[in-house]
Simulated scan of single mutants.
Amino acid sequence: MLQTITSYLDWFGVCVFAVTGALVASRKQMDIVGFALMGSVTGIGGGTIRDVLLGLTPVFWVQKPSYLITCISVSVATFLVAGFMQSRYRYLLWFDAVGLALFAVTGASTALQHGAGATIAIAMGVATATFGGIIRDIMGGESPVILSREIYITAALLGAGVYVSLVVIGTSQDAAIVAGFICGFGLRSAALMWQLSLPRYRPATDRNPE
């Protein structure tokens, strides 16, 4: 049952990420092809990098073109209603948080299933959850998500780390998935609500003298 729910949420995450990519295209006033490109890069970019780094070829969306078709379809739909969705972008960030937490867990799970060690699995979880957004921002000429003051990548790291740690100590797969998702989503949600961020480096010249 949980695997079925996770599968549905995986598709949900792809759709949400595709929408966020398409909305960047709307802010840059791209044509419908630009929407499709930005949406696809965001929706499947992280998983593509994961598969390439793990040597899993052909990558997942080549084996299942329905992922690419979904990204293109969602992007085209967003092209038609971008004005409505852009005004509600803040709400979309909450759906993005769901995708972030879920992809962190499923990305780590995929790595473990193909023989990766714990450290690499966690790294692949983070890559799956965040690299699509990073590529989107670079292509769209926007400040990359890794430079955001709010906690983002750290939430993916927490979710993937909790999941892998529980699997390593022998916790059931279902329990590990739930725990990893809750931790990743919980941290990202807290960051959205209270603008949480990690301490940042300040040059010595900016610090108050003692």
Rank of each mutant, 00 (worst) to 15 (best):
T128P: 03
L157R: 03
V105I: 05
A18Y: 04
L147K: 15
R200S: 10
T110E: 10
A127I: 14
A190K: 13
M124V: 05
L37K: 00
G161S: 04
L187K: 06
R202C: 01
I69D: 00
L192F: 10
E210S: 12
G159D: 04
A121H: 07
F131D: 07
G170D: 10
F185H: 04
G46N: 02
D137Q: 13
A82I: 01
P65M: 06
G140R: 12
G141W: 09
L92N: 08
T57L: 12
L157N: 03
A123F: 15
Q29I: 10
A104Y: 01
M193Q: 14
F12S: 11
Y67E: 06
S7Y: 10
D137M: 13
L93T: 09
I72A: 13
N208L: 15
M1C: 09
A204W: 06
V168M: 13
G117A: 04
K64Y: 12
Y152P: 07
A129L: 02
G117D: 14
Q113L: 09
C15T: 11
F95D: 02
F181N: 00
F60L: 08
V81N: 07
P144S: 06
V145E: 07
S148D: 15
V168R: 12
S172H: 14
G180Y: 00
P203K: 14
A101Y: 00
W11G: 05
G55W: 03
V14R: 03
G141Q: 11
S73Q: 03
K64W: 09
Y67C: 05
V19Q: 03
V81W: 14
S7N: 13
W11S: 04
G83W: 15
Q29D: 12
A36M: 13
V74F: 04
A155K: 07
F131W: 14
G186E: 01
C15V: 14
A111I: 01
R136V: 10
L147M: 15
A129S: 10
G21C: 03
G159K: 03
Q3K: 13
I5H: 14
V164E: 06
T128N: 07
L187S: 08
L92F: 15
T205N: 09
P65F: 06
I169K: 08
Q195N: 15
I146E: 03
V126M: 12
G34T: 00
A104F: 00
W94D: 09
F84L: 11
V167C: 11
V98R: 09
V167D: 06
F185T: 01
E142R: 08
W11N: 04
A190E: 07
R90F: 09
A190S: 15
P209F: 15
A123S: 15
A176P: 02
M85S: 02
A104S: 08
I182M: 00
G39Q: 03
F60E: 01
T48Y: 01
A97K: 06
